[in-house]
């Protein structure tokens, strides 16, 4: 039966894409959850539309570049405002995300052309092409490298910022770089994953893993296993029952979360 599924080129490509995207989102998700940035990744996803809109206005041939640069600017502005501590983080993020998304929607819906972009909402991993896979693979390597390099600092900052500073960790710089990394990954994978689901893929595997992990090694390992498992099973199931792939993956990840939650309580 699996042989039937993978006789199609698009299924093979989608499978390879999931092998790249899901562990990367999971891995970064461990720190998104640890640093309580769930809202942040969600907001970035919503603002992807604005990135696209800017690209369209400037009539750039490659929308990815516009999206990534916009994502970086958004992330950096957000960090600046957050550090002022005048508003609580979730408020700042919601304000910027709603505003960003509204601008994106407004521009893209001019002359009733939004349907061209609505696929971004749920994403479509089945439409990925061979040439795009290479970029995803590079993103995986690059993202993992960055992540490992900054992992200790990020962990330390999540425990206590002042303590991290007293250990000579450049807290603001590391936070900015990590935010830009998240922005890059969100913007480059959003077409396949979908705006509505991207933060679920960051959060769910890591959250499930926290239910049963006692140290960082277990936390990271279980997160990657859960990400890959829900990604691959989701792809196969979605093909069999003919449902969009993204939601199926998220549903499986959610089931894993509740399973580990109950198991972890024991």
């Amino acid at each position: 039966m699996l042989k039937d599924i993978f006789q199609y080129e698009f299924m093979k490509n989608a499978f390879l894409a999931i092998l790249c995207i899901s562990p990367l989102l999971g891995l970064l998700g461990t720190m998104v959850v640890q640093k309580r940035m769930a809202y942040f990744s969600d907001a970035l996803g919503h603002c992807a539309l604005t990135g696209v809109a800017i690209g369209v206005i400037l009539s750039l041939s490659d929308l990815n570049i516009a999206m990534v640069i916009f994502g970086w600017i958004f992330a950096l502005i957000l960090n600046r405002i957050r550090r002022k501590k005048l508003l609580s983080s979730d408020t700042v993020i919601s304000v910027l995300a709603s505003a960003g998304m509204a601008v994106g929607l407004a521009i893209l819906s001019r002359n009733g052309t939004f349907s061209n972009y609505s696929a971004m909402l749920v994403g479509d991993v089945l439409s990925i092409k061979r040439s795009e896979l290479l970029w995803l693979f590079i993103l995986l390597l690059f993202g993992t490298g960055f992540f490992l390099y900054f992992l200790n600092s990020l962990t330390a900052m999540s425990i206590h910022e002042t303590l991290a500073k007293s250990s000579n960790i450049r807290v603001n710089l590391v936070e900015d770089i990590f935010s830009m990394l998240i922005a890059t990954v969100v913007m480059l994978s959003i077409r396949w994953v979908g705006i509505l689901l991207i933060s679920a893929l960051f959060i769910l595997p890591a959250a499930a893993s926290r239910n049963i992990s006692e140290n960082m090694r277990e936390y990271t390992a279980y997160t990657i296993i859960f990400s890959l498992f829900s990604g691959i099973l989701g792809l196969v199931l979605s093909y069999m029952v003919n449902i969009a792939t993204g939601p199926v993956i998220v549903m499986i990840a959610a089931v894993i979360f509740f399973g580990t939650y109950i198991y972890g309580k024991k």
Partner: peptide, 8 residues
């Protein structure tokens, strides 16, 4: 995480 460079 606070004292070493090698990934935790």
């Amino acid at each position: 995480s606070f004292k070493y460079k090698s990934p935790v």
